[in-house]
């Protein structure tokens, strides 16, 4: 499990590599929460292109981070979602609170991150 991030204005682009299940969820949660200690981060964009597997444990991780940024008036989005993960996100109703985009650029422009 690897997590890397890149800050673009008020948005944090987070790439999660590996598998997100109950076993790895705690470590992921800790990493994300330490990133969110910076109160100027309003938007989290998760790049899931290298996430090989996710079950409903991942849903809890996304909802928890959504609660934090939504209190700051921000939002959570996901990009490059694979079919297996898309199915888990759809079934759990997560798309009612987080948005899915086709690319990081698209997700950034939706939050004004690419403005000159």
């Amino acid at each position: 499990m690897q997590i890397s991030s890149c800050r673009i204005k008020q948005a944090l682009v987070v790439k999660i590599e590996g598998e997100l299940d109950h076993h790895t969820a705690d470590a992921v949660r800790e990493r994300l929460d330490s990133m969110l200690e910076d109160p100027s981060i309003k938007y989290m964009i998760f790049d899931l292109s290298q996430l090989k597997f996710m079950d409903s444990s991942g849903i809890g991780v996304f909802i928890g981070r959504y609660k934090v940024v939504s209190q700051r008036g921000g939002a959570v989005s996901v990009v490059y979602v694979t079919p297996q993960i898309n199915k888990v996100l759809e079934v759990s109703g997560l798309y009612r609170i987080i948005r899915k985009y086709d690319s990081i650029e698209e997700a950034l422009s939706a939050v004004g991150g690419c403005d000159e």
């Binding site: 969820a25 949660r29 079950d55 409903s56 444990s57 849903i59 809890g60 991780v61 909802i63 928890g64 199915k87 888990v88 079934v91 759990s92």
Partner: peptide
Amino acid sequence: ERSGMGFTVMET
């Protein structure tokens, strides 16, 4: 921070 979706995922 469990989502409560485990059985729903299995059923789907």
